[in-house]
Nucleic acid binder design. Structure first.
Length: 425
DNA sequence: TCTGGGGTCCTAGGACCC
DNA sequence: TCTGGGGTCCTAGGACCC
């Protein structure tokens, strides 16, 4: 019998900021996206102030600060490190774990007896207090027979007063049904905005309504994906824990600009930066790519502006992770899609069609030994830059895209010697 | 003035093969 | 008048997730 747990860090980025700032314990906190563009995380208090997820910062800033709110620009070095610490604890608590995102993991609790709800609750409480004590992050835990139901449980765990942050559902239709009735349709894992709209036209309101629908209807009118969701809601395990350490299938580095760019001379250094960064990621994954592309677009929010969005992909003559190959491709591709006098707001570089470095396919027209030298060159550059970004390509921007607007970044408390927290005597 | 970044999977349709 | 059957691979687009 399958049993899964979902461990979900509450208000993750905001909670991370709070670890080293106990003075902010009951204050509303928001964390902003790059360029301080919009709100991407909110503490409980910020949610209570009515700050919506994804709202543009400039629209809510004044009101939020007036109410005593504190904001942070995103500090992914900190969040990544805290995430690792949480995941390490979880890895020690279950035979198998799937790290689903920076703030969420599924645990395989195979053989746990869910009929006795005390067992599940005790496990969850132990897990919760350990993470709180060792890392300082509050988590919510849902336990259920399918992954989709753990999401339901986690949602219901929010409202628990007896055992806050914990909820379990056993594999019993009566119990599942009563849980599902409390969950609105759009909260179901796998039902997004569009599907939610379509399904509500059919009169569905809750997760329970969806679970009761005729499977063959779902299959013929929607997709196999939604069919799995329905089956999982009924307690039938369709999704297993994904333990594979599959390599990525695509790497994207993209940013919005703090100021619109209209000249290709200004665009090139930034896009090249994206290319350099993307190749670093690719080498870290021990992969080669045989296709890459660049895209640019204007801001869809500025309706009065001329709009343009375009991408251009190029195929590499042989699979590569050599930054120079990608920069070459960008140099040829960007002018093809670029249009003069359009206010570009965002661009990015994508790498795809990966293959393993061990199975490198050499080109008929390149000398093998040259490729080996390139490998060593790239490795050396990576090693040097890992400590301090000293080596740059001439075509990269001098300041780098990291120079984009950030008005209030917290220190990298746990990953940089110079930014360790200080204790006053 | 100012609106994030990075992923995955599925499907339909076209090109091509024998 | 009549025009096969069974595949694979690739791409673009749509949906979802955090």
């Amino acid at each position: 019998m399958s049993v899964f747990a979902l461990v979900d860090c509450e208000n993750f980025y905001a909670s991370c900021e709070r670890i080293f700032r106990p003075d902010l314990k009951y204050k509303p906190i928001v964390v902003l996206s790059s360029n301080d563009g919009c709100v991407i995380a909110r503490s409980k208090e910020a949610k209570q102030l009515g700050i919506q997820m994804g709202v543009p910062w400039f629209k809510t800033k004044k009101n939020f600060l007036k109410n005593g709110g504190v904001f942070f620009s995103s500090n992914f070095a900190l969040y990544g490190d805290i995430s690792n610490r949480v995941m390490n604890i979880l890895a020690g608590m279950a035979n198998n774990i799937e790290i689903y995102s920076v703030d969420e993991a599924f645990l395989d609790l195979e053989n746990m007896n869910l009929e006795n709800s005390d067992i599940a609750d005790e496990f969850a409480m132990h897990c919760r207090s350990l993470i709180k004590q060792w890392v300082g992050i509050p988590v919510r835990i849902g336990i259920a027979p399918t992954k989709t139901l753990t999401k339901v449980a986690s949602y219901l765990a929010k409202e628990q007063t007896k055992r806050p942050g914990i909820f379990s559902i056993s594999n019993n239709w009566m119990e599942i049904a009563s849980s599902l009735k409390k969950v609105p349709l759009h909260e179901v894992w796998g039902v997004g905005k569009r599907l939610g709209k379509k399904l509500s036209v059919l009169g569905l309101r809750t997760a329970y309504d969806l679970a009761c629908i005729d499977i063959s209807l779902i299959r013929s009118r929607y997709s196999v994906v939604l069919e799995r969701t329905v089956r999982e809601l009924r307690g039938e395990t369709c999704l297993q824990l994904d333990k594979s350490l599959d390599p990525k299938k695509q790497i994207v580095v993209s940013r919005s600009f703090s100021e619109k760019i209209t000249r290709i001379e200004d665009l090139f250094p930034i896009v090249n930066d994206f290319g350099v960064r993307a190749c670093e990621k690719l080498r870290k994954e021990n992969q080669l790519c045989s296709k890459a592309g660049v895209f640019i677009r204007t801001s869809p929010f500025r309706i009065k502006d001329k709009q343009h969005s375009a991408s251009k992909f190029f195929t590499l003559s042989s699979p590569t992770n050599d930054t120079r190959d990608i920069l070459n491709g960008i140099r040829k591709s960007l002018p093809i899609i670029f249009r003069r006098n359009y206010p570009y707001a965002k661009s990015g570089v994508m790498l795809m069609n990966f293959s393993d470095t061990h199975v490198k396919q050499y080109s008929l027209f390149n000398a093998d030994n040259l490729l080996k030298q390139n490998d060593r060159l790239m490795k050396t550059i990576d090693q040097i830059n890992q400590k301090e970004n000293l080596i740059r390509f001439a075509s990269q921007s001098e300041v780098g895209y990291t120079a984009f607007r950030k008005t209030n970044v917290s220190p990298r408390y746990t990953t940089n010697w110079n930014e360790l927290p200080r204790v006053n005597e």
